[in-house]
């Protein structure tokens, strides 16, 4: 997968442009989108104001390539895109954008969940949750 990582938040404009780019692909009958947004969790009276993401890019890219190939083998998709933020993303902003397209809708629901789960479990991305008072904790995926 090319250019998965984006510095900072994934903007609504970027998402809209991605959708627009697919309007020339007339074999597509269904899109499905997952957007992960940074949540302002409260821990011991302190609110998360943002998450700073880092990743081990070399391994991340090879894992993403494997995930891409295996997703295409498992589901009949026309195309798929995954974007993830690096650096600081503030609460309320989007940090993960998964976009799946196929001829018909049934495939895209299952493929989206499969892709999101695999990205979260297998791609070496790390998140530092920064609180209002500038202290931090390390994000743990549930």
């Amino acid at each position: 997968m090319k250019n998965v990582f984006i510095e900072g938040a994934i903007t609504p404009e970027f998402i809209a442009q991605s959708l627009a780019k697919h309007q020339t692909k007339h074999s597509i009958g269904a899109h499905n989108i997952f957007l992960g947004q940074v949540r302002a969790d409260e821990v011991d009276g302190q609110k998360v104001k943002g998450i700073e993401y880092t990743c081990y890019i070399e391994l991340a890219n090879s894992q993403l390539e494997t995930i891409r190939e295996e997703t295409f083998q498992k589901y009949k998709l026309t195309c798929m895109h995954v974007y993830h933020s690096l650096g600081l993303v503030e609460a309320g902003e989007v940090c993960l954008f998964v976009f799946v397209s196929a001829e018909r809708r049934k495939e895209v629901y299952a493929a989206t969940e499969y892709l999101v789960n695999r990205v979260k479990e297998e791609v070496p991305i790390f998140g530092k949750e920064i609180f209002d008072n500038e202290t931090h904790q390390w994000k743990v995926n549930q």
Partner: peptide, 28 residues
Amino acid sequence: NQVLVNPNKTYLIKDSDEIVILPPYAGG
């Protein structure tokens, strides 16, 4: 060298190796 390994398996480190230590993943 960009491949996950079993840390309990015997592996003799070479001079040119890159060893990366990764905490649990937390993407999304």
